[in-house]
């Protein structure tokens, strides 16, 4: 267990004019940790995720990341080229809407292979071989390797997104409501897959979800957000079983018990 965090966030704040996107968020994330950000829509959890993934720039605050060489770097001071390189090698981003996370006109194999080609792999056979392995790992029939995701179901598209992101062995993966909009059984299968991959690969994950069941199943820690602020944070089972704040108690009590 490394004692330096992988990601260190301090005082992260984003204003949209007079409106607060998120305010004064600080936390550390360590390798292998899964952090769930929960809250209702409009609570600022997606804003926070976009700030962390450097897709938005903050009004205030800092984000530091431990690079593969061990150096802690200030993400906001990095050049765009470096950040983008990080995004397509050491990071992943699984999006709620697969059509934003995949190239819908490119075959499944090409979708998985893109990151490999982006980091300079130039051997077709090996790229295809790796894509093949990853399709297998995310339980997509390998004879679909040349089909485009247009022909895939919602669950398959999400699994393909995961393969596409994990192929470069990232250390940090952002997930934005990866299971919403899927049927319950499809959702269960996807959660199971994500859980296994996360523990197998020792990934650090920041997952945004409004679904407390998803947070409970996948995450070690949870941050509860309301009106752009983190109002409660802690071990996932602690926050969900012993919620302190009124809002968290409300969230927990409005979950159907199954």
């Amino acid at each position: 267990m490394s004692d330096t965090p992988l990601l260190s966030v301090s005082g992260l704040t984003k204003h949209f004019g007079h409106r607060i996107g998120c305010a004064d968020v600080s936390f550390d994330l360590y390798e292998g940790e899964v952090l769930a950000i929960v809250g209702e829509s409009g609570s600022g959890k997606s804003t926070l995720l976009n700030l962390l993934a450097t897709e938005l720039s903050p009004t205030r605050g800092g984000i530091r990341y431990r690079m593969r060489d061990g150096a802690m770097r200030d993400l906001l001071a990095m050049s765009e080229a470096e950040r983008r390189f990080l995004l397509r090698t050491d990071w992943g981003f699984v999006r709620q809407d697969a059509t934003h996370g995949l190239r819908m006109n490119v075959s499944a194999g090409g979708n998985v292979g893109e990151r490999l080609m982006a980091v300079g792999q130039r051997h077709y056979g090996r790229i295809r071989g790796t894509a093949f392995d990853w399709l297998e790992r995310v339980e997509i029939e390998t004879d679909r390797i040349d089909d485009t995701p247009k022909a895939f179901s919602g669950g398959m598209r999400q699994r393909l997104q995961i393969a596409r992101n994990l192929v470069t062995h990232p250390r940090l993966v952002f997930m934005d409501e990866p299971t919403s909009g899927l049927d319950a059984s499809v959702q269960a299968r996807l959660l199971d897959l994500i859980r296994n991959l996360v523990s197998e690969l020792g990934l650090a994950v920041i997952i945004v979800t409004h679904d407390l069941a998803v947070a409970r199943l996948l995450s070690h820690r949870v941050m509860v957000m309301k009106s752009g602020r983190v109002i409660e944070t802690g071990l996932t089972d602690q926050v969900l079983d012993d919620p302190r704040e009124l809002y968290t108690q409300l969230l927990v009590s409005s979950v159907l018990v199954v």
Binding site: V106, S107, G109, G110, R115, M117, V119, R122, Y124, I145
Partner: peptide, 22 residues
């Protein structure tokens, strides 16, 4: 434009990959 500026040309090979795959 950004891809050119940063010489991120992985996409070009995706196109060739698709060719070979098809």
């Amino acid at each position: 434009r950004k891809l050119h500026a940063l010489a991120e040309y992985g996409l070009m090979h995706v196109k060739l990959y698709e060719d070979i795959a098809r």
